[in-house]
Design a protein around this nucleic acid. Structure first.
Lengths: 345, 345
DNA sequence: TACCGCGATTTGATCGATCAAACTACGCTA
DNA sequence: TAGCGTAGTTTGATCGATCAAATCGCGGTA
């Protein structure tokens, strides 16, 4: 195979040295315009492209982000992470970054992978798609000075504002609040909520969105609200069972807001087409069966992740010092997608 | 930041030269056992890991596979590609390979990306998740000697057995055949098929699976079979409409086999719980609503992809010559997952 | 004793780029 | 005219590993 052109080849053709070629690519301003044009022509003529590994070796940057591909991303809501992955890859492409995947069996294994990829100069930064209180992974990353951003707030007390922990999240409170408000706006008052058991950072946040909307506008008593608050582990079957159990008590239910599309589908199956049900995540399932749902703006999340990592326009991962002026986290607002369910389910 | 250990550091501690350290890592057999142990101890002590970019620069291999993340992977069946991605990443990890993502707007753009990543020595090989007749991408890859494997057969006449085009695919014929056989086994004879419009390599293949099973065992006439063969673009609504149209004609229908879970969900919504419906892809939706479906063994597909690319156990992408004895393609058999739908839908 | 052969290890060169320092040419000033 | 600053460019060194060739050590043979 004829060897690919290098800076030297380009320089030879343009009649300049290798470094000048390098300058044309990396710091065009310091090159005299007419020289630059000659070099650019040579680059085009040869179809030259910088050798990524060589550059990485020299600069000690990889222009690559690492994301763990969650093994349990199955289930009805797994698609959210996949859509996020799409969004991140597109945004990263736009900035000249690559996305590299890896898998891990456990948090410890994942840390092992962090170490491996960091040491191999394989990646500049990591994106984590979920974290939990006292997550050993974020602690390790912080301790070892490896840049990272999480999609999802760290729900621990102190963590949330730790300036070393960058995060982007979707405002679940707002999403569920919007959904509830939307239903309240149709004149309905007995709106039930079907969510996950406590404690769950995300789950509790969403539940509060419903509760606070209801307290403000439903004019129901605390007791009545408690009765309308259902709890179930995620899953279609669980959701259906919970709703059937609630209805068996005779509590009036005019609509149901859910913490996920899985639960919402279960709820919809339990109540039929008469009672509005709103899910969360706007998964393909919701679309398929015509279920209203809260859509997470994953493009925005992805853009936010990269912005926290590299600044508004940068093409390099900021180190901690350079990141002084940049905000440490971002909360994006989801959007309610209203659908007519009657035609399908 | 204290610099990471290099082969030189390891050698210094073990009292050997850098090359011996390299040998311990790459060709342990040629190193005297006691020396090897000393070096290994030093490696462990320092927590040394080879610098990936340096190695890549020298060896001109990246140990990385490129996969395009399909932008239109939405919809109910998009999950299949995502599960495939999981499987590939896991299998690749097992062989010490990484998976790198990229996006592209068009086949031309994708070729541009191929060129960029190949020239940058970013990836050793590509995995394509779908191809079509006279696909410019595979033609480019072949012409430029870039290794690749496709998930999905090239349906063109000559392409299928082109030894330069490696592929792995799932035997859709068999999947639908199994589904039809299963229904026939329950004593039912009027089994309809709901599939995509022709021509479609994959779609026509699946349709044949149904037809041939029916011809063999249903004892229905060609005319009756034609009447039971429905055509619809993919989508829940389309599926539902097609089934409703068929039933409106009065044609007796005792069961429906479908080319996708989307169509199957539409069919199920049209016929209710009385008539068995079998989908394809075994997506989360099928599981959620309790729909039988044909499951693609994506782990097997992923394993096959890597095997074609690197041989049964290799850790390096085979070049064309080294791949002499290795088979050029593999067809894996899907599996029917039978579910009781009545409880949910 | 001198030399060969061979396993084990070391040294020199290299992959392709970028950093840092040195050099050139040229205009300006004293 | 010598000296100086500066924009533009070149040369030398380096990143961390591996390849290729040279060297070392040592038992065996004539």
């Amino acid at each position: 195979m004829a060897h690919l052109p290098t800076v030297l080849d380009v320089g030879r053709i343009a009649g300049v040295s290798r470094q000048t070629v390098s300058n044309v690519i990396n710091t065009p301003d310091i090159v005299k315009p007419e020289t630059r044009e000659r070099v650019e022509a040579a680059i085009a003529q040869l179809g030259y492209r910088p050798h990524a590994s060589a550059r990485r070796l020299r600069t000690q940057k990889s222009s690559t982000l690492g994301i763990r591909l969650d093994p349990m991303a199955n289930g009805i809501s797994g698609a959210v992470l996949d859509r996020f992955l799409h969004a991140v890859t597109e945004q990263a492409d736009r900035r000249g970054l690559r996305v590299m995947l890896f898998t891990a069996d456990s948090p410890e294994d994942e840390i092992e992978q962090f170490a491996r990829m960091r040491d191999g100069a394989d990646v500049d930064a990591f994106i984590l798609t979920s974290t939990f209180y006292r997550d050993p992974r974020t602690e390790w990353l912080i301790a070892n000075g490896v840049p990272f951003v999480t999609f999802g707030r760290p729900w621990g007390i102190d963590d949330m504002n730790d300036p070393r922990h960058l995060w982007v999240d979707v405002d679940g409170w707002s999403g569920v609040h919007q959904a509830t408000e939307h239903l309240l706006g149709t004149g309905i008052r007995h709106i039930a909520y079907l969510g996950w058991p406590s404690p769950s950072g995300t789950g509790d946040d969403r539940r509060r969105g419903w509760r606070e909307a209801m307290v403000t506008r439903s004019h129901l008593s605390e007791l009545e609200l408690d009765a309308l608050a259902m709890v179930a582990e995620d899953g279609v079957g669980n959701g259906r069972a919970a709703v059937e159990a609630l209805r068996a008590t005779g509590t009036p239910v005019e609509a149901i807001v859910c913490a996920s599309d899985s639960l919402a589908l279960g709820a919809a199956l339990a109540v039929g087409a008469d009672i509005p049900v709103i899910g969360y995540d706007n998964t393909p399932v919701a679309e398929a069966v015509g279920l209203s749902s809260v859509e997470q703006p994953l493009d925005e999340v992805a853009a936010g992740v990269l912005e926290l990592l590299m600044g508004p326009t940068g093409a390099d991962v900021l180190d901690r010092d350079a990141a002084a002026g940049v905000p440490r986290h971002r909360l994006v607002t989801p959007r309610l997608v209203v659908r007519e369910r009657s035609t399908l389910l």
